[in-house]
Design a protein around this nucleic acid. Structure first.
Lengths: 169, 169
DNA sequence: TACCTGAGTATCTAAAAATAAACTCAAACG
DNA sequence: CGTTTGAGTTTATTTTTAGATACTCAGGTA
């Protein structure tokens, strides 16, 4: 009997199929970043853009959508506003990434790598990621606390502390 | 002068802001999996669901959308169909993940971890991921080819072989 | 004082997507 | 032979989103 089956015996319910999925961390993350422009804005922040007009120029995103996405990212604490001042102009806002935003890097690196592997142009990727100190190519890996490299097939999902069943309505 | 600046001097264009973003691997991956139901279907496949009715039951997704997403995932080679047969019923299709689909695990683990950290219930995550062999918790890490663990801040993006500028139209 | 610029807001239309509900189809069963 | 079941398809309705365009606003410059 696996870790799922033992959480709910004799109820006629299936812990995998009848569980409450509303507190799924994947779904909750997607509520915020699971939208095209949002992730592309973050990509540009990583590539060093920070001004409203930068995003508009490189993304070609409508201004009202851009403003809405930036506002949401700031509300969520993924970006923060600072001000910049070009000589001869007044102070204007710019957007910088927070540590909460930086913590999205592994997820986005995962998307990048998959695209590099399966959907790149014949010449290769458009952008490469490397370690600033040593210049070597970086990639995402799955590891366990004991330090072993883990293959995707060797990952086992088990119910966590907030696991609960869907109310039978 | 950084790796971006040296690709395009004296043109008045900015290699970051005027580059062609149409071959971005992040965007291309999102074209496929950057949609709510699609990633949630994959989540359920990892949690072992495989039948049409399983997905419908656990996700509450409209059938026509579910059918469309499953068809797309099979066309893209992320899922494959096999048949199963319950005693007393005819053969029916089921969906299994391919190695191309398994290669999305790091990206989705990244989303999961971020959600666990910033959007979990007070009790903690709904689901935990552990290493089947040793039972230890698994997470995603960024490493360079030399084996160093890399912080997000120490990643440098540089133009790759398919880098090109946007045509000035 | 009139104009310019970056950073938005407001408004509208058109297109796309989500959802619900009804319908189909092919075995297997009774 | 009529019914059930899983796996869809079709159709219609509503909601959301995208995108374009025009407008605002605050300070700086001529």
């Amino acid at each position: 009997m696996d870790a799922w089956t033992e959480v709910l015996q004799d109820t006629g319910l299936d812990p995998r199929l009848d569980r409450d999925t509303s507190n799924c961390s994947i779904a909750r993350t997607l509520e915020i970043v699971g939208e095209k422009w949002t992730i592309l804005i973050l990509r540009e922040v990583w590539y060093s853009s920070s001004r409203f007009s930068d995003f508009e120029r490189v993304l070609g995103c409508p201004r009202n959508l851009l403003a809405a996405r930036l506002r949401m990212l700031v509300e969520e604490g993924i970006l923060a506003t600072e001000t910049y001042k070009e000589p001869g102009s007044r102070s204007r806002p710019k957007y910088v990434i927070t540590s909460k935003g930086m913590d999205l890097v592994p997820a986005v690196m995962g998307l990048l790598e998959w695209g590099d592997r399966y959907r790149a142009d014949p010449e290769g990727p458009a952008v490469l990621a490397r370690h600033r100190e040593c210049g070597a190519h970086v990639d995402v890996q799955i590891r366990c606390r004991r330090g072993h490299a883990v293959q995707a097939e060797d990952i086992e999902s088990v119910p966590g502390p907030a696991f609960r069943m869907r109310s039978p309505g």
